[in-house]
Design a binder for these strands. Structure first.
Lengths: 154, 154
DNA sequence: ATAAAGTCTACAATCTTTATCGTGTATAAG
DNA sequence: CTTATACACGATAAAGATTGTAGACTTTAT
């Protein structure tokens, strides 16, 4: 299960992505993003910070500030975002490459049968999720108009 | 990430599976399983109960009691075990078929772009993990002798 | 009987998740 | 140069999940 936080991050990026698609470089305030995406404003603050630190969006401070996309949606990796927001994707700490950790109770990693089986599964999974981008998400919109499914948009 | 509990469940099943492979129907006590798999005995109690309720192993009470496999390893699904021990596998509650739950903040499920993208990913993932069985794990053992990688076996 | 083994219910420490609040800092407008 | 507006950052906290432990009870072979 992805966390609520990750869902909020995705909804926020959908809002910013849709906005960018209109061709207007106007930054959106946290308030506005919260309203459009239906996420708690004060919580969203922290989330947007993390997304910004990941280099996906930029923040503009001061009076007419806000947030804007600074990467093409096709170059925003969903798996990268997942790692940023929810942490490692790997089913076992010893299978994560960016957040590798030895299992404390494991004497011989190479011989671990649990690791071996999950490794195969994980590599295949990685291939799939690594190819997923924000653009895929933006484009999966329904004909009528772009929805996230969030109640606030109704 | 799978939980520690799931790791313990798998280690216990590897122990019971290896034992069954020897052709001896002798039940193993919790104590013995805990020793061989390197899991906390009192915690393992609860785990084995759940695995038993899932119909994978049987318990024998009384003096020379213990636990034995009652299913062929090739018929013990890893994904089923994951659901039993760790709960739903789906990335979103609205994508789980056995534990379906509407996202409270979602007005139109069919239009949700997050759901749509994760659904595709999830179906592909399901195909892979649903085909995984305990037998795959038992057979991925190293030549020398069957190891789980747990320190206690060294 | 009694010892050995599983069963069941409660409890609790620790960590993670999901926020909220207060205060500080930057900046555009007037 | 003051002020309103908006992001930045750290602290705190409630609720739930995870990872166990403890004690009392039941079953059964000897």
């Amino acid at each position: 299960m992805i966390t609520q936080k990750m869902k909020y991050a995705l909804k926020a990026l959908l809002v910013l992505g849709d906005e960018a698609a209109k061709g207007q470089p106007e930054p959106l305030t946290i308030e506005e993003i919260a309203r459009r995406s239906g996420t708690p404003k004060r919580f969203l603050e922290h989330i947007l910070l993390e997304v910004r630190n990941a280099g996906v969006i930029a923040s503009i401070r001061g009076r007419s500030g806000g947030y804007v996309m600074i990467r093409k949606p096709s170059e925003v990796s969903i798996s990268e975002l997942l790692r940023t927001i929810d942490g490692p994707i790997a089913p076992l700490p010893c299978l994560s490459r960016r957040a590798y950790q030895r299992c404390e109770d494991c004497a011989d990693e190479a011989a671990c049968r649990i690791r071996k089986v999950f490794a195969e599964l994980f590599w295949s999974y990685l291939v799939m999720i690594d190819s997923l981008t924000l653009e895929d998400m933006l484009r999966s919109g329904v004909a009528a108009d772009q929805l996230t499914g969030s109640a606030q948009e109704a």
